[in-house]
Structure formats: C-alpha cells, structure tokens
Design a protein around this nucleic acid. Structure first.
Lengths: 149, 149
DNA sequence: AACAATATGACAATTAGTTGTCAATAAAAT
DNA sequence: ATTTTATTGACAACTAATTGTCATATTGTT
C-alpha cells in the first residue's frame, strides 16, 4: 500500500497551524507588554475582559475563552487578591457564583479598553473588515472540523 | 477630548484575537490527542518537527517556531532523555550545537508525519488553497504590524 | 420521586514554562 | 587588531498551567 499523499490544502493547513502558534505567541507577548503597566498578564485580562458586559461563573468563562476551568480559577483567585473582581451569589446556581468586577476592576477595565481601542485601531488600520472576517470565519470553520474528528 | 472611537475593523480585529486564542488552544489539545500514543506533547513535536529537514541549534528552533529559547531547551532535554534527538557539533558555531534526530527519533518523525498527513488531509478537505493562504497571509501581515508598534 | 449523568468549583500534586543571571562564543563596529 | 555588541546555551529560582480527585449542586431520565 502506498503512503497517503498529502494534498496541497493539507500542506497549507499545516503551515497555517505553525503560523497560528507564532501569531498566538506574538499576541500574548504584545498584549502582556501593553498591559504590563496595569499589572495584568494575558491570562488575567482574558478573564477580566470576559465579564466586562455580563458577570458569569468561572466555568463559563473557560468555555467562552477556550481556557481550562482550573486556569480560570487560578486567574480569578489572582484577580480577587488584586481586588479587581469578586464573587456574587448566583440565583440560578448555588455553586457557580458569578464573577463580577469590583469598582477598582471597572476602572482597570476602562483603562484596558482605552489601550485596546488605540492599539486595535492602529494595528487594523490597513485591513478591511472583510479580510479580517474571513480569517475568523475560516478559523471557526476549521475549529468545527477539529471538534468532529 | 473625546474618547477615541474604535473603528469597525478594530472591533473585528479584537474578535480575531480571541478567536486565535481559542483556535490555538484547540489545535494544541487536538494535537496532543493525536500524538499521545507517541508519547509526545505539542511542545515536543514542535521541536522535533523543526529539525525534520535540517538540523539547527536550539535558538534557531525557538525563533522559527515562535517559542522561547528556554522552552526549547527544556523540550530538547526531554527529547534527549527519550532518546529521540541528540547534539551534533556545529562546524559553524562552537557553542550552538545542532539538534539532530536519532534513528529512533526519525522513526517517531515518520509516524508523526503519517498521522499528520491523514489528519491534515481530512481536516482541510473542504477548504480551498486560497482560503487557507489568505489566513496565513493576513496573520503574517498583522504580525508585521505588531512588531512595528 | 428516585436515580443517573453532568457541571461546577475546590484542593493537592505534578508538570510546564518563564525570568534573570552568567560565561562562552561569534559578529559587528571602530 | 581591538573593542563592543549580539547570540547562544546553561543553571537556578520562580511562576503558570495541568491533572487527578473529590464533594456539591444541577439537569436529565425513568
């Protein structure tokens, strides 16, 4: 039996994976740089950002952001120590308390947003909406395929 | 002065970042699943894969793959313990020895490649070459912008 | 209503990865 | 040629993240 031959799209897909790793790493390091002054790391602002609009429990943050439940728990503990978030009883679930930003947390979120807006504006300046949307769409589509396998 | 308003591409760019985090996490977990039987984790096969064609020193692996030098060192040590790679004197650089696969390492690389070919073929089946290339291109373009800032 | 299956968060132990520092080597500048 | 700057890899200390297990709460089944 012959060795299966790798199709052309498959080769490019592998390239895409490696590029994703690099891009992801770059985003994290740039993100860390941007928010260093706020005393936040990527894992922290990912969690803080996740409850910007609606307070949700840890497990849901994990699901939304593609993080592990335990990782979110850890980050949440740190954010609590920093006084940026707190627990709030969840009427719908006795165990799964909501994570909500404190007053201080809201201030940091506002600063975060300011930084993010300036930065994202300047980075995305030369890109069209469609170009970026296409990337997101393809990633999501690929993700679906990955889940199925 | 008004708060800077976030442009539409900027908003989508932020979405793209979050999607990248999720996609990256998914790739790692799927990759770990695929290569579990070989006793390799993502960080390990990233390093092993990097020297598939040409043996290079640790620092170069790190640069190519967007990993930290120290992380690569760690992975390399593990791969050496597992007997999959070894050092080889580098005529061009006394300090920076080349990392080369052992006989056993080459076997694992072959298995890895087999798995990778089957998997990438099946995932990328419904994607056009161009669609994937566009994603890579956009990521690289974004990366350039990120470096400049 | 009773039971089974799933989701959630806590904790401990382990593994993975980073940071800071150092000495050796190589490359670049003068 | 000499000096300065970069790169490279090693090591140790530290921080981050994962894994496995457990008790509790919720949801789904019968």
């Amino acid at each position: 039996m012959d060795i299966n031959k790798q199709t052309q799209p498959a080769k490019i897909f592998i390239e895409l994976i490696l590029e994703t790793f690099r891009f992801n790493g770059l985003l994290i390091s740039v993100g860390d740089g941007l928010t260093k002054e706020l005393g936040l790391t990527s894992s922290l602002w990912q969690v803080l950002g996740a409850i910007r609009e609606t307070p949700i429990p840890m497990a849901q943050i994990a699901r939304n952001m593609g993080l592990s439940r335990q990782g979110v728990r850890r980050s949440t503990n740190i954010l609590i120590d920093k006084g940026l978030v707190q627990f709030k009883e969840n009427p719908d679930h006795k165990r799964a308390r909501l994570i909500v930003p404190t007053e201080e947390g809201r201030k940091v979120l506002a600063q975060l947003e300011k930084i993010q807006v300036d930065w994202s504006n300047s980075v995305s300046k030369e890109f069209s909406e469609n170009q970026l949307k296409n990337v997101i769409h393809t990633m999501r589509f690929l993700s679906e395929k990955l889940y199925l396998l």
